[in-house]
């Protein structure tokens, strides 16, 4: 009994130390990445390519998710708001929810699966094929060459994609309200205007910015520490998606508690 208890305590301690070590390794990688900001010649020409791959290429899936989210929001709001609740609140619910919550979070989670896994798999493959080691051998800073363009691209493109997705989600909700529900455009717009404050957009940008940093940095981190060949690449991609999704939800709660 005492032996099992000790084993459990020991396992917990090992897990905590492993987690702390992982966070430390991520911190070291981020330190190297920030240090690589000075090597603009290295990462400058790679940023737009990463923006294209991370941001522009993710716009369709983000818009698809946002459009159907807006439709469902409008339908569920009209289903919920019965009796004394005025119907124009459908617009309030769709707008507010898309801007400050579902737009950033759903886009972040979608891009965590698409971008995070892609980055982890790409860098993991480079690690197991020793391409990263070759870069180091050639005196290239792997952080500046591989990590920094992706992190910068994610930090910039996540908010842009999120704003587009939120806007399309609201438009989808509006179309649903006027086509499928007994609402007029002025009613929906009144609901949008009623509880809208400009800080909602700022809040959405801050959240999606942090999500972009988290998803890209974690994708790079798990790709950089890939071991064990193709299986290791798969594990790295899975770990990157899982960790990114968890961090997105943690950041979501964190920003809501701090900024709202």
């Amino acid at each position: 009994m005492a032996g099992k208890t000790l084993d459990f305590v020991g396992a917990t301690g090992r897990a905590a130390l492993r987690f702390a070590a992982t966070v430390g390794e991520w911190g070291v990688l981020m330190q190297d990445t920030i240090r690589g900001l000075r090597a603009v010649r290295i990462w400058g020409k790679l940023v737009f390519e990463q923006m294209m791959r991370i941001g522009v290429a993710s716009v369709p899936i983000a818009l698809f998710i946002a459009a159907f989210t807006g439709i469902v929001l409008a339908l569920q709001a009209s289903y919920t708001f019965t009796g004394a609740v005025p119907v124009y609140l459908v617009g309030s619910l769709v707008g507010k929810t898309m801007i400050i919550e579902l737009g950033p979070v759903l886009t972040g989670l979608a891009l965590a699966g698409r971008v995070g896994a892609s980055i982890a798999a790409e860098l993991g493959t480079m690690r197991v094929t020793e391409q990263i080691d070759a870069l180091e051998t050639m005196a290239y800073d792997p952080a500046a060459y591989l990590v920094l363009p992706r992190v910068l691209a994610g930090a910039v493109m996540f908010p842009a994609v999120t704003l587009l997705a939120s806007a399309l989600g609201i438009v989808a909700g509006w179309l649903t309200a006027i086509q499928l529900l007994d609402m007029s455009t002025p009613e929906f717009v009144r609901g949008l205007e009623t509880f809208f404050v400009p800080f909602d957009v700022v809040f959405s940008v801050i959240k999606s910015f942090s999500f972009g940093l988290a998803v890209t940095s974690l994708g790079c981190f798990f790709g950089f520490r890939t071991r064990g060949g193709a299986a290791g690449v798969g594990r790295a991609a899975t770990s990157a998606v899982v960790a990114s999704s968890m961090v997105i939800l943690v950041f979501d709660a964190f920003w809501a508690a701090v900024l709202l």
């Binding site: 908010p159 842009a160 999120t162 809208f196 940008v205």
Partner: peptide
Amino acid sequence: NEVWVGVVILLSVVIAVAGSFWLRG
């Protein structure tokens, strides 16, 4: 790539700013 990235970024900024002003009346 640069054009597409610019389009996405500018479009999102325009939507956010113009939408905010519009919703604020």
